[in-house]
């Protein structure tokens, strides 16, 4: 077990899979000679060459479609879209081609591609470089969506995604690439479906994914120390499919739920988790579930406004106190 950074974990998964299988390639803007905006492909160009580490033109729809077409022949492309905000330009190919081809061909053709992209609010990147869009991806049948909250998950989920015969979208976060965490020394494959209990508790469940898992963990610590409230934190690393059984199990234990996301509320992860709670275990609830989410605005540039627009651990704490009638 070694402590490495998130970007190093992503890089290690690339490297191991590319060394193992000559059909694994990676492609994207500035990933080769320049080494990748977030260093996730650093050194791969020198090691595997320009045929397998492809610096693409700034043509998101084009190169995403090209990767998908290559995957029809058994190539395993890892397609990096530098910012998830640019993925809008590639969604036609991701959704209409990759996600649907297996179904509309009656199972003849699959698109075993991995799409990796970083989203989220970083440091005053403004409206067109700060969006979170996981809610868009998780609504598409035929596409798996995972979102690693730690270096271990970043490594293990990418390894599994590359081996998967389904197209997988991996949602990363621009602020998390330098996060440190333990990753097993031995090869490790993280399951693409399910959820994880990141902290066990009894009074309330805090559902998070990716960066919001860390707000939930910090909030759980504060709730424990300052308010004597025992919060369970569930990491929904798979956003499609969502782990219905895992959601039900935790709510049946704590009878209260808070869902934290950096995304805006409408048609979001929180909405979906609450709908699942209603369908699976409504009568287990002792209080109405609460969503913690960003303001419904294009992300502002001004730093104070930016911080006001997105939630953090304090918002999770406040939501729990409100839910328990203590605020």
């Amino acid at each position: 077990m070694a402590e490495i950074m998130y970007w190093e974990a992503v890089l290690r998964a690339h490297d191991e899979e590319m060394a193992r299988d000559p059909l694994v390639i990676c492609m994207g803007e500035d990933i080769g000679v320049a080494g990748g905006t977030y260093k996730a492909t650093k050194g791969l160009y020198e090691k595997y060459g320009e045929q397998r580490v492809i610096d693409t033109p700034i043509s998101e729809g084009g190169y995403t479609g090209l990767g998908i077409g290559a995957s029809f022949l058994g190539i395993r492309p890892i397609i990096e879209i530098m910012s998830v905000n640019f993925a809008w330009l590639a969604m036609d190919q991701m959704f209409n081609s990759a996600a649907k081809v297996r179904y509309m061909s009656g199972g003849q053709l699959t698109a075993p591609c991995v799409f990796r992209s970083a989203g989220g609010t970083a440091h005053q990147l403004g409206a067109q470089h700060s969006a979170r869009m996981e809610k868009v991806f998780m609504g598409i049948a035929g596409l798996r969506v995972v979102t690693p909250s730690s270096p271990k998950q970043a490594y293990g989920l990418l390894k599994s995604a590359i081996r998967s015969d389904d197209p997988v979208f991996i949602n990363e976060h621009e602020l998390m690439y330098n996060m440190k965490g333990d990753v097993p020394d031995a090869e490790y494959f993280h399951p693409l479906e399910g959820s994880e209990i990141a902290r066990s508790g009894t009074d309330v469940t805090l559902f998070g994914y990716n960066i919001s898992v860390h707000w939930c963990l910090k909030a759980a610590e504060i709730l424990d120390q300052q308010y004597n409230i025992s919060a369970e934190v569930v990491d929904l690393y798979s956003l499609s499919p969502l782990d219905r059984a895992g959601i039900r199990k935790s709510v049946c234990k704590t009878h209260r739920a808070v869902i934290a996301e950096e995304d805006e509320a409408p048609v979001g992860v929180g909405s979906e988790v609450i709908a699942i709670i209603n369908e699976e275990c409504f009568f287990e609830l002792d209080a109405a579930p609460v969503r913690v989410h960003s303001a419904f605005v294009p992300q502002p540039y001004n730093h104070t406004l930016e911080m006001a627009a997105i939630p953090d651990h304090d918002d999770v704490v406040r939501a729990v106190l409100k839910l328990l009638g203590k605020a």
Binding site: L23, G62, G65, I68, G69, A70, Q93, N96, S97
Partner: peptide, 25 residues
């Protein structure tokens, strides 16, 4: 026959990707 697609222009990059696959193999 790798398919009929209903988004006008959608097959362009898929065709190039298939060619990339041929090139690699």
């Amino acid at each position: 026959f790798m398919g009929g697609y209903a988004l006008v222009g959608g097959p362009f990059p898929l065709a190039a990707g298939i060619a990339k696959g041929i090139q690699m193999k």
